[in-house]
Amino acid sequence: MEMFIPLFTAAVVVFGLIKKVELFDAFTKGARDGIGVLVGIAPTLVGLVVAVNMLKASGAADMLCDFVSPAAQWLGFPEEIVPMIVLRPVSGGGSTALLTGIYKDCGPDSFAGLCASVLAGSTETTFYAIAVYYSAAGIKKLRHTLPAALSADFTAAVMAVVSVRMFLS
């Protein structure tokens, strides 16, 4: 898997050469857009990393974990990822903040860290997507959009734990 990035990069560059793309010009423009994305999420991230740190430092996070851990254990979920499952559809920045918290506390290669990584990689900020697309088209009545979209999110959470258990631990 670690060869995926070098090979993919080489394939894209060869593809670009064949299609006569101005490689470096395109690269620098894309990189500039990339920094734009980071600048865009910076304010949210600062606010939410602070909020998540406060939850932990005050001991409120431990209490919350104690509260949900029986349910998590019953499902076979590491309890650390439960808050992330809840926050993921609502806030991209918030779940990134929780993700880095898990990496810091348990390590990125721990069971909880791996599950959280897969969860973060395989879901989107559902409410944000719905808000952006529907408000652009003037849609106010969602009908069954939410149950359908949230069932996908929940499946991703279950499958994150199942697939990590099968292939990575």
């Binding site: 993919f8 990069t9 894209v12 560059v13 593809f15 670009g16 064949i18 299609k19 793309v21 101005e22 490689l23 395109a26 690269f27 620098t28 423009k29 894309g30 990189a31 500039r32 857009d33 990339g34 920094i35 994305v37 980071l38």
Partner: peptide
């Protein structure tokens, strides 16, 4: 920042080539 910029740059090449 570094990795995000690198990847966005590579994807822009792919995009311009009609990927």
């Amino acid at each position: 920042a570094g990795m995000m910029m690198l990847w966005s740059g590579i994807m822009e090449i792919a995009e311009r080539g009609g990927f």
